[in-house]
């Protein structure tokens, strides 16, 4: 039986949302960047971590309506990094920050 990932990383973004002009960080809307990032996470964390990309509409429809509402209300910014459904980075992030957030989550769970 295939093991379920313990950590689900969801990157929420919306091409039409207002963004910082600098556009620093990862753009996971690009299939190439997504594939490459998922590959790095696999190498780092094995099957423990699953990376997902979701639009704001998909998040709203998929049971995280409260988070989608917070984004619409300006309480959270896009792109939004969710780990197991909880917002961890609100705004642009890079690979370093993505990895540190996952590592923190793993260590917190073990505490």
């Amino acid at each position: 039986m295939k093991r379920q990932p313990r950590i689900v990383v969801t990157v929420v973004d919306d091409a039409t949302s207002p963004k910082c002009e600098a556009r620093c960080g990862l753009d996971l809307s690009s299939p190439e960047v997504f594939k490459s990032t998922a590959g790095v996470l696999r190498k780092l964390f094995g099957g423990k971590v699953k990376l997902e990309y979701a639009t704001l509409d998909a998040v709203q429809a998929g049971g995280l309506a409260e988070i989608a509402e917070k984004v619409k209300g300006g309480e959270l910014a896009l792109p939004l990094l969710l780990i197991n459904g909880k917002p961890r980075v609100s705004g642009y992030f890079d690979l370093h920050l993505l990895r540190e957030s996952i590592q923190a989550e793993i260590e917190m769970a073990a505490m």
Binding site: C20, A22, C24, G25, K86, P87, R88, V89, S90, G91, Y92, F93, D94, L97, E100, S101, A104, M108, M111
Partner: peptide, 12 residues
């Protein structure tokens, strides 16, 4: 005394 939530800054 336990972590209820955390967040990190962006690349900015």
């Amino acid at each position: 005394g336990l972590v209820a939530d955390f967040g990190m800054n962006t690349v900015c």
